[in-house]
Amino acid sequence: MSELLQNLIDGLGRGSIYALLALGVAVVFGIMHLLNFAHGELITIPGYLAYWAFTNDWTWWALAPAIIVSAVLASLVIERIAFSRVRGATDFTMLLTSFGVHFIVAAGFLLYVGAGVKQIERPGWFANTVSLGSLNIEVFDLIVIGATFAVLGATTWLLQRTMFGLALRAAASDFDTARLMGVKSDSVIRGAFALSGFLAGIAGVFWIMREGQVTPSAGINPMLQGVLAALIGGLGSLRGAVLGGFVLGLAEVLLRSWLPVDIQNLTTGFVFVMIALLFIFRPGGLLSVPQVERV
């Protein structure tokens, strides 16, 4: 029982980061049908900033806001330079554009910083745990879960209660009609990228803290987890993306604890197989958005 509880908390901690990433992917997908394979760069770029700042003796208190701000800026700049030029293109074209952006960023760091692993020191409390009965809970997990729920709450408020949120939702459901209402297409798309960057920035703080290092291709894994979680939840659904993130996190942790020891290192493989099965039996994801075929 307590083991299960322990796993649930671990899984929630892991899933929180995925949920933030997936939500960012889903916000952008909703607004312009771009599945952003460069979403992970919103962690790589701040990661290198963190490395630079760290070598200049910044504390994590200064680092965390810097990571978030740089993720938002990176998201906006990438939109401006690359994605704004393929707006309205086919899904195929936008997908490959984002894939190309990932490569340019990764190769840029390779070119100017080098292939080596750059270490970023974790904060002192990182490994601390608090004991609650038989449970040993990592402080890190608690902070991640707490921060994630706060951010998700704020995002919900933003989407439900502010005019920007309404405009974003309206544009996601019918872009042309939203423009007919006076919603500015440029602003709403940039807003979506800023929000996506902000969410990735929060996730980035924890991701970088947990990994304690950064490499040119550091974006691949967070991108994959974000995209997969968004897909598990059902592309086009923001709630689905968050749900997908938590499901993915829990699945990883629970599977790892249930698998026999000698094949535990294949956990990720098994998670992928489960995802494949999910798609086979529920192609639209958990909260699939009904797609009407236009004749």
């Binding site: 690359a82 554009t97 190309g100 952006v101 490569f103 340019i104 990764a106 190769a107 070119l111």
Partner: peptide, 11 residues
Amino acid sequence: LNSVVLGLAMV
């Protein structure tokens, strides 16, 4: 430089 070229060609 060749890996940057790949990304640039794609985009």
